[in-house]
Lab assay of single mutants.
Amino acid sequence: MEVRTIKVFTTVDNINLHTQVVDMSMTYGQQFGPTYLDGADVTKIKPHNSHEGKTFYVLPNDDTLRVEAFEYYHTTDPSFLGRYMSALNHTKKWKYPQVNGLTSIKWADNNCYLATALLTLQQIELKFNPPALQDAYYRARAGEAANFCALILAYCNKTVGELGDVRETMSYLFQHANLDSCKRVLNVVCKTCGQQQTTLKGVEAVMYMGTLSYEQFKKGVQIPCTCGKQATKYLVQQESPFVMMSAPPAQYELKHGTFTCASEYTGNYQCGHYKHITSKETLYCIDGALLTKSSEYKGPITDVFYKENSYTTTIK
């Protein structure tokens, strides 16, 4: 009895394709271990004539594949690729409408935090270190965002349907971005203890939790000093293409032309909904596939993004 075979390709990165001759009487799992086709788990399936010449994702289970996976995804987590594939199996079914010149995501599976993050990423200057993220990001900007969303979920250790947080998501993504040249110098002034300067680099240099107003941050924000008295913390120097200011959701007025974009969060910790506000020729609110415009805006804002380049204080 002759062994019926077909020729397929296996890959971990969709760049390096490895030619395989597979036995049609055995499952993919018996031949390769966990195997995925377009995100779908085909591990328990036997090869079919229609699979001839198709590319299958496999887990990096030998040295060659491990090197290829690390170079593309910059992670050695053995569960990463499987999590990416199972997320992709959902995100490829989502709709990605162009809204006001940006790629958004039609609401499904509690994905409003991903839509808000995706919209924000198209408006701030950011370059990702893992080629996987950078490639998928370019495709997302062009309207094909399924891979990018699935990668975000995998890097953030999230599953489809789980509630997510924009600030946490951005923080994970910033860790995989090139923020080497970003720098922030802060000064804390206390009447009792004097003053202390701190220099922050990388992710810490672009994120701040405690106030939404970048102007206020430049002037000074009140913080408790270690001595128990009130101290003032203010920005001395900022070198970065953008800054992200966050605070627990509270009524906040966004003035046209003073910011790049913002995240609105309605609801409580267990259950809520994100919308995205962007400042173009007027203010726009993007909620999944829905767009509304207004000249002014007041609502429960939790993150505001500002364009920056270089700032030095005039406070002496």
Rank of each mutant, 00 (worst) to 15 (best):
Y28N: 09
K46E: 14
L17P: 15
I301T: 01
G210R: 03
W94M: 03
G161E: 12
L151C: 00
G267F: 14
P131N: 01
T192N: 13
R167C: 05
P130S: 07
D13G: 05
E253G: 08
M85A: 05
D180C: 04
D41W: 05
L114A: 01
P97M: 15
A140Q: 02
L163K: 15
G267M: 14
A154N: 07
V188P: 04
Y252N: 00
Q31M: 10
N268M: 02
C225R: 01
N61S: 11
G257V: 04
C190N: 02
A117M: 08
T35G: 07
A154T: 11
M209T: 15
K280C: 11
R167L: 01
D287V: 04
K95T: 13
R66Q: 13
K218G: 00
T75F: 08
R139W: 09
T10R: 07
V203Q: 01
T302S: 08
I15K: 14
L179T: 07
T27F: 11
T19K: 13
E125F: 01
S294Y: 11
C156L: 06
V243P: 00
C193D: 01
V58P: 04
S310Y: 13
S213V: 01
F32E: 00
K106H: 13
A87S: 07
T192Y: 11
L173Q: 02
K191G: 14
F242K: 00
H276M: 13
Q134P: 05
A87N: 15
P130T: 08
V67S: 14
C156S: 08
L37R: 13
P47V: 08
L37P: 05
T258K: 10
G53A: 13
I277M: 11
E125C: 01
R167M: 02
W94L: 04
N129D: 09
D180I: 05
T211E: 14
Y57C: 09
S310A: 11
G33H: 00
L235N: 02
N129S: 08
S181R: 13
K183N: 05
H90K: 13
T232L: 12
V203E: 07
D303W: 01
M209I: 15
L81R: 02
L163C: 15
S104L: 08
I277C: 06
M244C: 02
K46F: 09
E239R: 10
P60N: 09
D62M: 03
G194R: 01
Q251G: 06
F242L: 02
Q20L: 08
C190Q: 08
S171D: 07
L17E: 08
